[in-house]
Write a protein that binds this DNA or RNA. Structure first.
Length: 708
DNA sequence: GAGCGAAACGAGGAT
DNA sequence: CGTTTCGCTC
């Protein structure tokens, strides 16, 4: 990849004081941060430990880390490079006691927040307006990210009144469980830096140089953290692109980047408008779309990469046809899987794609979506582990107190809750009292006593052992494996597999980190599922447009170019929201290096029924000369018999082919039987086990041995 | 309190 | 269409 010239790079990276780099898509903005850090260390002699680099995703942090380390030629980097949230957690662990709270707090992820809020909404008085727990959470979260608290002004909106009623209940529950949510990870440190001079000075001395990536995505709290730490005229170096601001729904405040020069007087501003990633054809189309936005500073990216195809657009019959068109095109044009991506607006769109990939026997990987640690089995076990570290975490207790079933149902639990509220003691202690109190039934007392004894026994282990062995003890003492095995006949193997995977990740943590269970649990809340993916993965990547930010691919399919998806239906009403959808479209389009193919369907099954669809307005915004209408083969031969997809798979799944099964791992095809939809294969797995599968139903991925 | 089948309900993006 | 909640019976 061509890069910006030395002189230009020097001008940007060699400097003191605050600086803003407005860097367009594909202009090499990560490199700017890397070079600035290298310059600080090598030319300025800044101690690497005094530098703090903040990103938004772990993936971006990992990439930045390895690039800096490579440039410096060191094995271990002393510079703190990580996400804003992990930095917040890092600060909280050290300073929690200053806030008058113990260190063994629980970090609640979105799932924890949701179940808590569901309960609170249910508990509202009967006359209250019905509100959705999700909306209540985002209302609260928005205020917290803007560092505000609900005021007492008379609100005209009934919903807001309910949200305001939920606010103290929610925070009381968090405090009672000794838990913090995602927003607290930033909000509490920001509060400390703002109010405690001693703490602020300590961190200012420690981090003399601060760098922020994707500055357009920062919210108010993140802005405050950067400002407090960098101090007057401090060394704050931020990089961002207002055209790629796609996280306003998460609290990102675009004025942070727009007002940077005002907030940090004397700031140097640089603009990077040359794109080194995409062809002229792709960039022209993407520019045309984003140029339709009114609210922008207006910068025009250019590329000197001639050649390449015009951007393609294929209008297909329905969702199934779209998926087949994608996989057929990949096969026909010989796109290399590792440098090909399918991007979509909503996670639900992945399903049809996955099916098409499986049928075709093409390797794919879905990035993001349902998180591994959010799966039921993992969540159950996590909640056990949390209680061992933080025995007052009643929210986690609620989840697992009757898993596996041990005779503590809703009625008993409510009784425990009322003891807990009445006496002002944690749930676990309430259960201890219940077990002793003859006023309760013998059945309830015995069940409560057994649970308390179970937790007490496990808690003894939790202090000293490795995470893996504590987890094994939990599995053993609770009989969790038996529970999984007997609770659901159908997919218990896959679920046991999930448990084993979790054990493996605990063991991995034990090897890597000395922190023990407390650290393990707190870190886990910040782990996202997109981290496992890199461009090295030999598979076509399927992900949302949001997840694709920061990545690039030779070939990009942007599917579902229809009103309702992109722009999303929920955003259609406000111009502001449509502009963000347009930026999202721009982000997705500019992921492509060589080929960009768009698609949309005429009809699609939504909510169980077929509906007519309208092509996205963003398609119309691309000048006609820059868009090539392509027809799917299917449309061209419509009416004629189409060779069925399983036949294609049959040819590829011949004897000796190496495959990977979603549950059992790698194996070799021993023989095939049947044909078409009934095609069966017997596979011997590397573990020695052999099994037979229906190709049409099994999660098989062909690794090698495809038809020559 | 547990287990089952029926009914109702719910899909935006994610650190 | 897939998942969660409801409501009944044991």
């Amino acid at each position: 990849m061509p890069t910006m010239n030395e002189a230009q790079m020097k001008a940007i990276t060699a400097g003191d004081g605050p600086a803003l780099v407005l860097a367009g898509a594909g202009s090499g903005k990560t490199r700017v941060i890397v070079e600035r850090i290298v310059w600080l260390i090598e030319e300025r002699g800044v101690d690497p430990r005094n530098i703090l680099a903040l990103t938004f995703t772990n993936r971006a942090a990992a990439e930045m880390k390895s690039r800096i380390a490579a440039r410096l030629g060191v094995e271990r980097l002393a510079t703190w490079v990580g996400t804003y949230h992990s930095f917040g957690l890092f600060v909280l662990r050290r300073e929690m006691e200053r806030l008058g709270r113990p260190k063994n707090f629980t970090v609640f992820d979105d799932g924890d927040q949701l179940s808590l809020m569901k309960r609170l909404v249910k508990g509202l008085s009967a006359g209250s307006t019905k509100v959705s727990p999700r909306e209540a959470l985002s209302w609260i979260s928005r205020l917290k990210q803007e560092t505000e608290e609900p005021g007492d002004e008379e609100s005209l909106n009934e919903e807001d009144a309910v949200f305001r009623e939920l606010w103290p209940k929610y925070h009381h529950a968090l405090e009672k469980a000794r838990a913090v949510d995602f927003d607290d990870l930033l909000g509490l440190p920001a509060k400390l830096f703002g109010e405690d001079d001693e703490v602020r000075e300590k961190y200012r001395r420690r981090y003399t140089h601060i760098l922020v990536d994707e500055y357009q995505d920062t919210n108010r709290v993140q802005y405050l953290i950067a400002k407090e730490l960098s101090g007057e005229g401090g060394n704050l170096f931020v990089v961002g692109d207002e055209d790629q601001s796609i996280y306003s729904w998460r609290g990102a405040d675009i004025t942070n980047i727009l007002d940077f020069e005002k907030d940090f007087p004397g700031a140097a501003t640089f603009r990077l408008e040359q794109n080194y990633r995409s062809t002229k054809a792709i960039l022209a189309a993407a520019n045309a779309v984003v140029a339709c936005n009114v609210e922008r500073l207006g910068k025009t990216l250019w590329s000197d990469q001639e050649g390449g195809d015009r951007v393609g657009y294929c209008l297909v019959a329905d969702g199934g046809a779209e998926a087949r068109w994608v996989v057929d095109t990949i096969a026909k044009r010989g796109f290399e899987p590792r440098s090909t991506a399918i991007l979509y607006r909503t996670n639900g769109q992945a399903r049809a794609m996955e099916e098409a990939f499986r049928r075709k026997g093409l390797a794919y990987i879905v990035v993001g979506g349902i998180k591994f640690f959010a799966r039921k089995e993992i969540k159950d076990l996590l909640c056990y582990l949390r209680i061992l570290i933080n025995p007052v975490d009643g929210e986690s207790l609620r989840r697992i107190v009757n898993i596996p079933p041990r005779g503590i149902g809703g009625t008993t639990l409510e009784e425990v809750n009322s003891i807990s509220e009445r006496r002002g003691i944690p749930m676990l202690e309430a259960m201890r009292e219940m077990a002793e109190d003859l006023a309760h039934s013998a059945r309830a007392r015995n069940a409560a006593a057994a649970f308390v004894a179970l937790i007490d026994t496990l808690a003894l282990k939790a202090g000293s052992d490795s995470v893996e062995s504590i987890l094994e003890a939990v599995l053993e003492a609770t009989g969790y494996r038996d529970y999984v095995q007997h609770s659901d006949e159908k997919d218990f193997r896959a679920r046991l597999e999930v448990v084993d995977e979790f054990i493996a990740s605990c063991a991995e943590f034990d090897e890597r980190d000395e922190g023990g269970l407390e650290i393990f649990l707190q870190d886990l809340a910040l782990v996202s599922d997109t981290e496992g993916y890199s461009n090295e993965t030999p598979a076509v990547a399927l992900m949302t447009c949001h997840s694709a930010k920061g990545l690039e691919f030779d070939n990009v399919f942007l599917i579902g170019m229809e009103e309702g998806y992109l722009p999303h239906g929920i955003a259609a009403e406000s111009d502001e929201d449509v502009e963000e959808e347009r930026r999202l479209c721009y982000v997705a389009m500019t992921r492509a290096r060589k080929t960009l193919l768009l698609s949309g369907a005429e009809t699609r099954v939504v909510f169980g029924e077929g509906r007519d669809r309208t092509p996205s307005r963003f398609i119309d915004e691309i000048p006609e000369g820059q868009l090539e209408k392509v027809a799917s083969e299917e449309a061209a031969t419509r009416g004629r018999a189409r060779p069925s997809a399983p036949r294609a798979a049959e040819g590829e799944l011949r004897m000796g082919a190496k495959v990977r099964h979603g549950t059992f791992g790698k194996g070799t095809v021993m023989y095939t039987s049947g044909s078409g939809k009934k095609l069966k294969v017997r596979i011997r797995f590397d573990s020695g086990m052999s099994r037979q599968f229906m190709v049409s139903a099994a999660p098989l991925e062909i690794l090698e041995g495809k038809r020559k």
